[in-house]
Simulated scan of single mutants.
Amino acid sequence: MPGLPPDPPPSRLRWAWWLLAWLSLGLGLLGVLLPGLPTVPFILLSAYAAARGSARLHAWLLAHRRFGPMIVDWQRHGAVSRRAKRLALAMMSVAAVVMFLTAPRWWMAATGTGIMAVVATWLWSRPEPPGAG
């Protein structure tokens, strides 16, 4: 296909990278619908794996209207937009409330909420993309 970068060099593990890229993309897409299942980390993992296993999938992800800018910001600057940070925090909060309302033991919900708090702290420590207001 013209315009696509060449496939990565042949490797014994290329099929594993390809499989990881597609599985991560599937989980990321499920995360759009299911609260508590993260989208962004799975999409970023999919892009990372696709760069090593499928030039076509990697190019598609970079050109994607929603995912492309997020992937480029992460690859170039290790940056996450303020909008994505806010959305992630809101979804984690919803997931925490659902866990406290439905978990059979309070410590189960507290453990999940604690893990999400650590992730949220790390996420907010990431820089914002250059030029983001």
Rank of each mutant, 00 (worst) to 15 (best):
V32K: 00
T39L: 13
T102W: 13
Q75I: 07
R14N: 04
V118R: 02
A63W: 08
S54F: 00
P10I: 07
A55P: 15
Q75P: 10
L33G: 13
M116L: 14
W74R: 05
R126A: 06
L25N: 09
R105F: 13
P5R: 08
S46N: 13
G133N: 05
P35C: 02
H77A: 05
V32G: 02
A95G: 04
P127T: 03
A16L: 15
L62I: 04
L29F: 08
A120D: 10
V32I: 15
M92L: 07
V118A: 13
R14T: 10
V80Y: 10
A21N: 11
V119W: 14
A95Q: 10
A63Q: 09
A88V: 08
M108Q: 15
I43T: 00
R83K: 10
W122Y: 12
H64N: 15
P69S: 02
V118P: 06
L33F: 15
R126V: 04
A120I: 12
A79I: 09
V80A: 07
T111W: 14
A49S: 04
L19W: 15
F42G: 06
L4N: 05
A132F: 09
R86S: 05
L19S: 07
P35T: 06
L57E: 11
A90P: 01
A90E: 03
Q75N: 15
M108G: 11
A103Q: 00
T113W: 07
P69Q: 07
R12I: 11
L62T: 10
H58I: 08
R12F: 14
A63F: 07
L45H: 04
R14L: 10
L23T: 14
A79K: 01
L13F: 15
S93I: 03
I115S: 00
Y48T: 13
R76H: 07
T121Q: 03
R14G: 15
L27C: 14
W15E: 07
S11E: 08
S54H: 03
A50V: 11
W122A: 11
R83E: 02
I71K: 03
R66M: 07
L23H: 14
M108P: 03
V97R: 02
L89F: 11
L20F: 02
F67C: 01
S46A: 14
P10N: 11
R86I: 12
V118N: 02
W124Y: 13
F67W: 09
G36K: 08
T111I: 09
W17P: 00
P38R: 05
I115Y: 13
P10Q: 04
L23Q: 10
A47S: 05
S46H: 08
V40Y: 11
R66S: 12
G36D: 12
